[in-house]
Design a protein around this nucleic acid. Structure first.
Length: 249
RNA sequence: GAAUUUUCGA
């Protein structure tokens, strides 16, 4: 049982969901009832492989209905992650609701909410992301930096760079510190908006916060400069990036 | 003892 779960996990990490699924099936023929962890790992494999339809099917029709294995929180979370990866915001929200109902009722945790928020990113569903942030608060789960980063990302997807930048303040108001990803998303917002000055301000904030710029930071900052016609600064940033030995994204 | 969350990839 344990080795099967590990093997399935290895397939997930390697992005080989087909093999993960056949291992899951094999567990049955070997008379090892697939357990909840094996299912969780298979769910993660499907999520990584962007096979969200299969993941939902496994969750809805197979796991509990046929095998009698109650999906754990992690199973739901892995499925939610799969939906997030393809920007299926609506279905993610539905699953978030569904997991709280019926005989397999499970209370969502911060991972669940963060994945549902992340699902809003690709489509730029900023309003939905904010609603989820509110919802988690009301339900007694305090948002963390990941939650806010997800909301920021949804604003970037929406093309709303100013709203994205304001979230840096929201993070601080919540008593948290923006992390490297927060600043990178903020700089990316500036790139999308063609705002090189704003990008420079963010870089300064980032440095003041004691964080160092990584390859993503530079890539987004350079893009911001290019998008607003500041070639001089763009070139200076490329030089700086090289001096630090960072790869040009 | 094992499974889940944020930065666009060519």
């Amino acid at each position: 049982g344990y080795s099967y779960s590990s093997a399935i996990h290895a397939c997930a990490a390697a992005g080989r969901w087909e093999e993960a699924m056949s291992l899951l099936r094999e567990m049955k023929s070997v008379k090892l009832g697939p357990n909840v962890v094996a299912y969780g790992a298979a769910m993660a494999a499907l999520a990584n492989g962007k096979q969200w339809e299969l993941a939902l099917k496994l969750l809805d029709e197979k796991m509990y209905a046929v095998e009698g294995v109650k999906p754990s929180l992690m199973c739901f979370n892995a499925a939610l992650h799969g939906l997030a990866a393809v920007g299926e915001a609506k279905r993610a929200r539905e699953l978030l609701g569904a997991m709280q109902q019926g005989p397999r009722s499970t209370r969502p945790d911060i991972y669940s909410y963060n994945s549902a928020i992340a699902a809003c990113g690709p489509g730029g569903k900023a309003a939905e992301a904010r609603e989820l942030l509110e919802e988690m608060r009301l339900r007694g789960t305090a948002p963390d930096v990941f939650s806010f980063n997800g909301v920021m990302q949804a604003n970037v997807g929406d093309g709303n760079w100013a709203a994205a930048l304001e979230i840096l303040e929201d993070i601080r108001r919540a008593g948290l510190n923006p992390d490297t990803a927060s600043f990178n998303i903020a700089v990316h917002a500036c790139a999308v908006g063609g705002q090189w000055q704003a990008a420079m301000d963010v870089l300064e904030e980032m440095t003041e916060a004691g964080l160092s710029m990584d390859a993503f930071t530079y890539a987004h900052a350079i893009e911001a400069c290019c998008n607003s016609g500041n070639r001089v600064t763009a070139v200076a940033l490329v030089t700086e990036l090289r001096d630090k030995g960072l790869p040009l994204r």
